[in-house]
């Protein structure tokens, strides 16, 4: 049996609509197709031991997904990414496989990029107003929590943000908290809908770019 292994993979294109649960199942089958045998849990209802570090919302893309797993045999880690990618549906690409040295809990920040689309409004004005908005000391929004609707300040979960106007859209790059608290980047748009509807985009989408630890060193 192998040690715990870690996979880094991309989920882009049409694959962004595969839900977290469906992705787990897709992964399981992709390993089967590629001829790798996942280790299953013991017990009455065995399931493969795979864990995706940070579940991704449906519709969001990522170039830095992390998944831990165990195999029944030791694989050749160098050939694993290409072999597994060949068994994936369109849009899922395995970047690397390795024995992890760090715990998932040490993953703290995510770098994301986003697009806010504005069909009728001036992108330059929007970009400037967005920068002002996200510079505030507090951004308190109402969101669903485990105990019903609650008020949350999302500002501490945004380490930095940059807004650049484009053609009918504003490009966003931001560093946001990945865990404790987890900030779904979709809440950046949601905050605008709640607090400054005139700045709320007609459509927003995000891509995760890179994972960092608490010291902003790249996390692997």
């Amino acid at each position: 049996m192998s040690e715990k292994l870690r996979l880094r993979f991309e989920k882009t294109g049409r694959a962004v609509y595969i839900s977290h649960l469906d992705l787990m199942h897709t992964m399981q089958r992709a390993f089967n197709r590629a001829g790798y045998r996942l280790k299953y849990s013991e017990g009455f209802n065995p399931h493969p031991q795979i864990a995706i570090a940070l579940p991704l919302s449906v519709g969001a893309a990522s170039r830095c997904e992390i998944m831990d797993f165990k195999l029944l045999e030791d694989p050749d880690l160098a050939e694993l990414p290409a072999r597994l990618t060949a068994a994936m549906p369109e849009g899922v690409r395995v970047l690397e496989a390795y024995e992890p040295s760090r715990k998932v809990a040490e993953l703290k920040w995510l770098r994301v990029e986003g697009l806010f689309e504005y069909d009728e409004r001036d992108a330059g004005e929007m970009a400037a107003a967005l920068a002002d908005f996200f510079r505030q000391e507090q951004i308190v929004i109402t969101k669903k929590t485990k105990r019903g609707m609650g008020e949350t300040d999302i500002r501490p979960a945004i380490r930095e943000s940059l807004f650049t106007p484009g053609d009918k859209l504003v490009n966003i790059t931001a560093t946001i908290s990945a865990q404790e608290p987890t900030l779904n980047p979709e809440l950046l748009a949601e905050a605008l809908r709640q607090l400054r509807p005139e700045l709320a985009p007609d459509f927003a989408k995000f891509t995760r770019l890179e994972t960092y630890d608490a010291e902003m060193e790249i996390y692997r």
Binding site: R14, Y17, G59, A87, P89, K205
Partner: peptide, 19 residues
């Protein structure tokens, strides 16, 4: 399509791209 897919139930059934 990109704009409506996030709003519907189980959007993966409308995208193709399967293995």
């Amino acid at each position: 399509l990109e704009r409506i897919l996030p709003r519907v139930q189980k959007p993966a059934r409308y995208t193709g791209g399967e293995y």
